[in-house]
Design a protein around this nucleic acid. Structure first.
Lengths: 161, 161
DNA sequence: CATGAAACAGAGCTACG
DNA sequence: CGTAGCTCTGTTTCATG
């Protein structure tokens, strides 16, 4: 799909404020409200915009600690096996298979260090996991994420407060 | 600040769809539209909700490749030095200082592997960087991020298409 | 083919009870 | 917190370059 400058400007405006009115966005980029709506509808159908979301503060919700965990897995573990296993933990906010020594890298959000430890313990207990190597986040320097990831009760098990 | 179940349900609804109407959210959790608006206003003032943002597909915008880069820095490099340096790269979507051998971990989004390489080269050229260790993402397994991070033209230098 | 203007319906917002 | 009222926005239709 083809995106021109106006489409990019509209996306930029909506990333900044998803509740901005079509009229305001139009005024900012030089387009009428209906034209903006048409383009937004098109951007949604094409998959460029997948939805709209609230930006929440993990700290305010009690998720004050984060960690990155490298996973070293058994011989021929399938990525889908890893996915299925880590998906069950709401604390796993992001996971990906990577190049290098480790097989996968997980990003974990938890209420405190004890909580991180418990989650890692349970993940390490998975059959295919040979060993883990974790790094606790000391301070966040950059977070370009529009809506910072926060654990969600996918199986009704996560709630700090 | 104190958050009850209704507040959490409202946040959950807004993370799923930031453009949901107050009436719809109210109907889902058993509250009137005005009551929902009052709570949302309160959640914004308290800082639990920091804003609303469009969820965009990095792929659709041309950001098809991602990598994690560990930074090993000189003796007494300050976290703020690292922050200032990596902030200048729109491709650095997230950065944090961490425990362990490495000093910091960066999450990079780029258009292709060549692009990743160029960014790492430029970061490695920073005075305080001793060496880097990077891992290209092979496949993303989990992404709980409501609005997936996408490089933004913070200094007018980033645009894949 | 996309845009802008107009018209209707529906949501946001602000009292007040 | 819910209800009622006014205002503004979302949405569709239509005509135009």
């Amino acid at each position: 799909m083809e995106l021109d400058r106006l489409d990019r400007d509209i996306i930029g405006a909506l990333v900044e404020d998803a509740r901005a009115t079509y009229a305001d966005i139009g005024a900012a980029i030089g387009l009428s409200a209906s034209a903006v709506k048409r383009r937004v509808d098109r951007l949604r159908e094409s998959g460029a915009i997948t939805g709209f979301s609230a930006r929440v503060s993990p700290q305010a919700l009690g998720w004050t600690t984060e960690a990155y965990v490298e996973l070293f897995c058994a011989g021929k573990t399938k990525p889908s096996d890893i996915a299925l296993a880590v998906m069950r933990f709401p604390e796993v906010v992001s996971a990906a298979t990577i190049t290098g020594e480790a097989d996968a890298l997980l990003h974990i959000r938890a209420t405190d260090v004890r909580h991180v430890e418990r989650v890692i313990e349970r993940i390490a207990a998975e059959a295919f996991v040979v060993r883990t190597k974790s790094a606790i986040v000391l301070s966040r320097l950059v977070d370009a994420t529009p809506g910072t990831a926060v654990p969600v009760e996918r199986n009704g098990s996560a709630n700090p407060a």
